[in-house]
Simulated scan of single mutants.
Amino acid sequence: MTRPGQARGLASILPHRYLLTLLVRKELRVRYQASFLGLAWSYVKPGVQFAVFYFVMGTFLGQARSLPPFAVFLFSGIVVVNLFSEILGNTTRAVVQNAPLVKKIYMPRQLFPVSSVLVALVHFAPQLVILVIGAVASGWRPDVVGVAAAVAGTVIVIALALGLGLLFGAINVAYRDIENIVDLILMVAVWFSPVLYPTSRVTGSFGGWSWLEQVYFANPLTVAVELFHRAFWWGAADPAMRDAELVNALALRGMIALVIALALVFIGDRVFTRMSRTFAQEL
């Protein structure tokens, strides 16, 4: 029998699903309290981001001509990076932002970062709907491999961001400047993953530094973006634009990325569980 109050990691969430639901509702209510647009911000923010990137990268730098339909290519990457950014940013701050609850009552501390993941998925859903509509309008039709790629990409992003969020969130309780480090990571995430450019431009561009190229393609976020490109852009793109060799390598890269992401969840959960014993005192 588990001793009362003993931390058991993410597994401790299962008996507290009702509390998790309450935390998700609270976070959504607080976030949009006194907000004119409310949940519509889930559409506005990615919409503005898409418009800026499309105008700069698509029009000025000519990506719209070299990667048709560039709108689907671009938005496929944006929804992935936005999901990663929201989960990682919010899970890192989850414990600190819920300090009054942490100090007053005992509950599994993992409830706070996991609730942030669910809130991010609430915002991810309308963006995914827009992506599907845009892809269909561009001539895309779903296929089994594409659906599997979309599911795999989503799982990789959630696991990667949650694992890092648990790790950084635990450390952030003691050292608040971790939030600044995470903000830097999120700032460059969109540039160090193939959201604005095809990975074909990365291949060989490192010159003799082939190990840098391997590191780039080992990045789970890079793989997740490419999986979404396979899921939504591939079916609408001109056959001449499709990199069959790259797509054939996605299955192996996807499995490696999933293993890395799940390993980070395990490591992050262990660190979070160990450090959670002193959260109340630190806060």
Rank of each mutant, 00 (worst) to 15 (best):
M1L: 08
P4G: 03
P4F: 01
G9K: 07
A11M: 04
H16I: 02
L19P: 03
L20H: 07
A34R: 15
W41K: 09
Y43R: 05
G47W: 13
V48R: 09
V48C: 14
F50D: 09
M57A: 11
G58H: 01
G62L: 07
F75L: 08
F75K: 07
G77K: 02
I78C: 05
V81C: 02
L101D: 09
K103W: 05
I105T: 14
Y106G: 02
V114Y: 03
V114W: 04
S116M: 08
P126D: 12
V132I: 15
V132R: 12
A135R: 13
A135P: 08
A135N: 13
G139Y: 12
V144D: 00
G146M: 14
V151M: 12
G153W: 09
I156H: 00
V157Q: 00
V157R: 06
I158G: 01
A159K: 04
L162V: 10
L166Q: 04
N172Y: 02
A174C: 00
E179Y: 00
E179A: 08
D183E: 11
A189F: 01
A189L: 03
G204A: 10
F206A: 10
W209R: 13
E213P: 03
Y216K: 06
Y216S: 08
F217Q: 10
L221F: 04
T222D: 04
V225E: 02
V225R: 01
G235I: 13
D238E: 15
A244Y: 07
R253A: 10
A261K: 10
L262A: 12
A263P: 03
F266T: 15
G268R: 11
D269W: 05
R270S: 13
S276L: 02
L283H: 01
